[in-house]
Design a protein around this nucleic acid. Structure first.
Lengths: 231, 231
DNA sequence: CTTTGTATTCTTGTATTCAATGCTTCTCTG
DNA sequence: CAGAGAAGCATTGAATACAAGAATACAAAG
C-alpha cells in the first residue's frame, strides 16, 4: 500500500480526495459512465471509505458523478455539448463580471492587470506556453475578484476549472495565445476608461473567440467521445 | 402533492439531511455565522454524524456553510448583495435559456407553457397564491428543460432554489403575480414565433422586473440582516 | 434450452469507535 | 497580579464495524 506522498495536511483528507477525483474526471482519466467503487478508490488512494464517500457526494453536487442510491457512483464526464454550453454561459457571465469589475476595480488591481498583459506579451514572444496559461488564469482571477461578487466569482472559478484542460491546449497554439492576450489588453483598457459597456462586450467576445478558436483547432473533438447517447 | 419533506426511502439519509439543512439555511432558520455542530444536528434529526458530515461537505461546496478544518462548520447565509447578484446573473442566464429553448422546444412543451399561463391567469384572478408560486416554478422548469442544456438547467435550478423564499413573497403580491404571468405569456409567444432574440430579451427583463418589484416591496431588506460586515 | 427462484457474495448506507486537534481552564511561576 | 504552560474537555477527522440492499451464480422446473 503506497502513501500519497506530496499531499500536505493543509486540506482535509476528503477535500484532497475530492480534488484528486475531480481532476481525474476532468482530465479524462476516468471514462464516462465508469463506476467508481468506494473500496477501489479508497485503497487506490490509501485511505478509508469515509473520505471517499464524502468526496463522491460533493462530486455528485457538481454533476461530475451520478450517485444511484444503493447502486453506486458513476462518472458523468463533460461532453462536447457541455463544453459548448459552458463557453456560452461563460461568455455572458464574464461579460457581467467585466462590467462589475469596471465599476469596482481598484487602482492596484488595474495595475496588476496591466502588468499581467505586459508579462504575457513577453512570454508569448518567447513561446513560454506554461507561463501563458498561468497568466491567463491570473488575469481572469483578478477580474473575478474585482467584480466584488462572491456568487459570480465562485461560479466563474468553477467553470474556469471545468475547462482547464482544453484551455491549456487552446493557449498552446501560439497565435491564439497572442490574440487572447491582445483581447485581455483591450478589456483592461476599457476598464481603465471606466467603459463598462465596452468591457462587458469585449469580455464576452473574448470567451466566444476562445471557443471558436478551440473548435477551429479541433480540440473540441476531445470531448466528443463523451457525447451522451440520448436514452 | 409535494414531494419534499416526506421521509420516504427514496433519497439517502445524507441526501435528506442535506436538503433539510439547505432549506433551513435558505429560509433563515439558522443565523449567519452560526456554528453547526455535527452532534447537535445529528441528534436533532435522529441520525448519526456520518450523514450529517456528508451533508455539510455538500453544503460547503454550495457555499452555504464554511468548513474550517478541525474547527467546525459555520453557516454562510445569503446576503442582500448575494440576492442582487443572483438576480443579475439569472437575468443573463434565463435569457440564454429562453434563446436555446426557443430553438429546441417541442410542440408538447410549448403547449405545456401555454396551459401553464392559462391556468395561472385563472388562479391569479382568484388570488390562489400558492398555486401561482407552483405554476411559476413549473413555467421556468419547462424552459430549463427545453433549453436542452444539462449545464444551464442545473445552474438555473440551483439559483431558483436559492431565492425560493423571496420569490414566494414577491409573487404573493397580487399585482406582481399578474404582471409576472403576463411576462410569461410574452415569452411563450416569442417562442411560438421562434423569435429567439425576443425570447431572450423578454426572459432577461422578466427576471430584472422580478428583482425591481422585490426591492419595491421591501422584501429585499429581509436579507440585509445577513449582510456581511467586512472584518 | 430457457426461465425463474434462491442463496451467496459484493457494494453501499449508516452507526460506532478511535485518534487528533483545538479550546478552556486552572495552576504555577515570575 | 499577569502570563505561560499543561491538563482536561469538547469537537472534528478518519477508520472500522455492522446492517441492508443489489447483483450474481447456480440450481431446479417447465
Amino acid at each position: 500500500m503506497e502513501k500519497n506522498q506530496d499531499l500536505t495536511k493543509k486540506y482535509s483528507l476528503s477535500g484532497r480526495v475530492f480534488q484528486k477525483l475531480r481532476d481525474d474526471i476532468l482530465s479524462g482519466r476516468y471514462k464516462d459512465h465508469e463506476e467508481l467503487r468506494e473500496i477501489a478508490v479508497a485503497t487506490e488512494l490509501g485511505v478509508s471509505r469515509t473520505p471517499v464517500r464524502e468526496a463522491l457526494r460533493q462530486l455528485e453536487l457538481e454533476g461530475l458523478v451520478q450517485i444511484i442510491p444503493n447502486r453506486g457512483a458513476f462518472v458523468s464526464a463533460i461532453s462536447a455539448t457541455d463544453v459548448h454550453d459552458i463557453y456560452m454561459i461563460r461568455a455572458r457571465l464574464e461579460g457581467l463580471c467585466a462590467r462589475w469589475a469596471t465599476e469596482h476595480i481598484s487602482r492596484e488591481e488595474l495595475e496588476a492587470l496591466e502588468q499581467n498583459v505586459y508579462l504575457a506579451d513577453f512570454h508569448a514572444a518567447r513561446g513560454h506556453m506554461d507561463q501563458m496559461a498561468e497568466l491567463d488564469s491570473e488575469f481572469h482571477n483578478i477580474m473575478y475578484s474585482a467584480c466584488r461578487s462572491k456568487m459570480l466569482e465562485h461560479l466563474l472559478k468553477d467553470y474556469h476549472q471545468y475547462v482547464l484542460r482544453v484551455r491549456k491546449l487552446t493557449l498552446s497554439v501560439h497565435e491564439r495565445g497572442l490574440a487572447s492576450n491582445n483581447e485581455h489588453r483591450s478589456i483592461m483598457e476599457a476598464m481603465y476608461q471606466k467603459d463598462a459597456d465596452m468591457a462587458e462586450k469585449l469580455a464576452s467576445e473574448h470567451i466566444q473567440n476562445a471557443f471558436a478558436n478551440m473548435v477551429k483547432n479541433g480540440f473540441y473533438d476531445l470531448y466528443s467521445v463523451n457525447e451522451k447517447e440520448t436514452s
